[in-house]
Design a protein around this nucleic acid. Structure first.
Lengths: 341, 341
DNA sequence: TATAAAAATGTAAACGTTTAGATCATCTCG
DNA sequence: CGAGATGATCTAAACGTTTACATTTTTATA
């Protein structure tokens, strides 16, 4: 009933635990007749080495923590998938944690991950100031930030060009002839929220289009807020002819609102979204979006982390910026009819 | 530079490690003046207890393993979300693993999870025969199967009424007047694949509609296969007037194929899908689906597991079957025009 | 065949906690 | 005031590995 230990194996094979350990870890230097015998005994007892005990002495766990803010946003499972795959290749396991955008939960989770002695941490933080990372930094545990930067600490970061993408999106609308371009932006205390807004603003500036306050609405990156903000835009006296939604979920909310209130996409209003979504190809006209390489984002994050975990080397802050691509479909075409006046 | 241990705390607070341990674990029986002092020292040294060492002696890790076959299927993040939330409430952590539908990877992962001494396992297996679970069973580690059953072992299972849902879906089509009803079913060696097909078959039987081989196509639950099978159905001499797709991804593929080949949804062909998806509300007409309570599925799974992990009690195999709900939208209305002859 | 060198194996400490049982301190009550 | 009882604290073993170092065995060489 008690799990067999390395000692049980050793006894039965008539060798010392050290020798058994050596064959388990494939370190060589064991006579092959003995090795055979040991392998047989392991099989016979269905012995499985205890990683907890191993971690105890080696002081590494081969486990990384991954903290994301919203598992229901399809963006994150994709980056997690990239992380996980890359991690497993190198023999690492992933503990996945979801903060639900709560800085308090995030702090708690970090604490617990530290208790578990994770070898590294990949995080999309719910609080970019980053004080919650202090204990992680103190313990010299490698961290990589994904999608959202950490302000007050030097941590490696991998993200896509938010400004770039937003700029492209906005410019695309402008080049289609739009002048009244609204944005449903994200929270301004987050990197993506802020940078995407900046991209929008710059594009307007560059093309000499005034930025109107009433065209700048702020959501929380969740569906509901996209929905509500769209309604607000529709109730404006001077409605915009185009909307730029700053993330996938808000785009979804926006789309739902459009059909709900009968604001005709592609006729009365153009729309471009940040991040692709399944739905994009199914609305009519199909939705133009800025799309990001999520899986790659995850892979890059782990690669960076891995380097830090192995070469405990340089502690320079590195930034990895992947490029977004605009996927032009049909939702931004300006129909001459009523959109321009 | 070296992480502070309980001993460092003990020394500095001038007490024994036992006392420190007691305050860390809030076991009481420590004079409050001493407790204060110890707490201060912990703060001062930024001491964090080492869960690895604790697990070593307590022989529990407060960690569960979750194995899913496809992280890119939006179904799973939702159930994982349910599991995770429930788990955290009880102080458990979740190691998430993705097999990519590979039984080999699954076996490997199980081995590693055992090495890590997880306290329990929740699994949607890629191989329902379940031999890969032998070592888990041997070690008396609680297991709960989600969404797919385990054939050869007595493990608790939580799923939704696959047959029920498929029956409802098919009947819905029949009651709309359809007689030529095709199914794009899943792999028949999986519970959902098989049961959903049975539901389809029973409904046909009950309403005296012959089951035609050419209307029964088999996919692999991934998007591509739904796409291809739809094309096959379209190329049939005697096309079906309705299609039942047995999971979300295949529904998506089917929809893409429909628009691609110009097979008009709701006019020439009706469609009902198993599992809801974002897209459903955005196609025209909106898609009728059988919807499952995924989050609840995850919650139920953890609750079951938790019971097993704590009361090491009864080892009867329990089945938890949640009910699917059909969400009627407009994609199944039979237009008199050409669909009936 | 003796001896040095190399290879194989063994011994035992260490990893950082928890916890049973021992010990010490304090309190209660006659 | 002293004997128990109760409460607080301590000591040390245990958890299952890895690994530095010591020891033994084998091999190579003269």
């Amino acid at each position: 009933m008690h799990k067999p230990t390395i000692e049980d194996v050793a006894k039965l094979a008539k060798v010392s635990t050290a020798t058994v350990s050596r064959v388990i870890n494939k370190q060589g230097g064991v006579k092959s007749s003995k090795e055979q015998r040991i392998l047989e005994v392991i099989e016979e007892l269905a012995y499985i080495p205890n990683a907890v005990a191993r971690s105890m002495v080696r002081k590494i766990t081969n486990t990384i923590g991954v903290i994301i803010p919203d598992i229901n946003n399809p963006f994150f499972p994709l980056v997690v998938s990239g992380i996980e795959q890359q991690a497993r290749k190198k023999g690492y396991f992933t503990i996945l944690c979801n903060t639900n955008e709560s800085p308090e939960i995030e702090e708690e989770l970090i604490q617990i991950l530290l208790e578990r002695s994770v070898d590294g941490l990949i995080i999309t933080t719910a609080n970019e100031y980053g004080h919650q990372l202090q204990p992680v930094i103190d313990r010299r545990i490698p961290v990589v930030a994904v999608d959202r930067q950490i302000r007050n600490y030097e941590v490696d970061t991998v993200l896509v060009g938010n400004m770039d993408g937003a700029y492209q999106a906005t410019r695309h609308l402008i080049l289609q002839g739009h002048k009244k371009i609204a944005i449903i932006r994200g929270p301004q205390n987050t990197t993506p929220g802020y940078e995407r807004f900046v991209g929008y603003r710059r594009a307007l500036e560059d093309y000499n289009i005034p930025l109107l306050d009433e065209y700048v609405l702020e959501g929380d990156f969740k569906e509901e807020s996209g929905y509500l903000d769209t309604q607000k835009l529709h109730s404006l006296q001077d409605r915009p002819t185009a909307i730029f939604t700053a993330n996938n979920l808000m785009t979804l909310g926006c789309l739902k609102a459009l059909t709900k209130i009968g604001w005709v996409l592609g006729e009365e209003v153009s729309l471009i979204g940040f991040d692709d979504l399944d739905v994009a190809e199914f609305v009519n006209p199909q939705l133009t979006v800025v799309s990001r390489p999520m899986r790659q984002l995850g892979e890059a994050a782990f690669d960076l982390l891995y380097e830090k975990m192995t070469h405990q080397g340089e502690w320079t802050k590195r930034h990895y910026v992947l490029s977004p691509k605009i996927k032009i479909r049909q939702s931004c075409v300006l129909r001459p009819s009523k959109t321009m006046e």
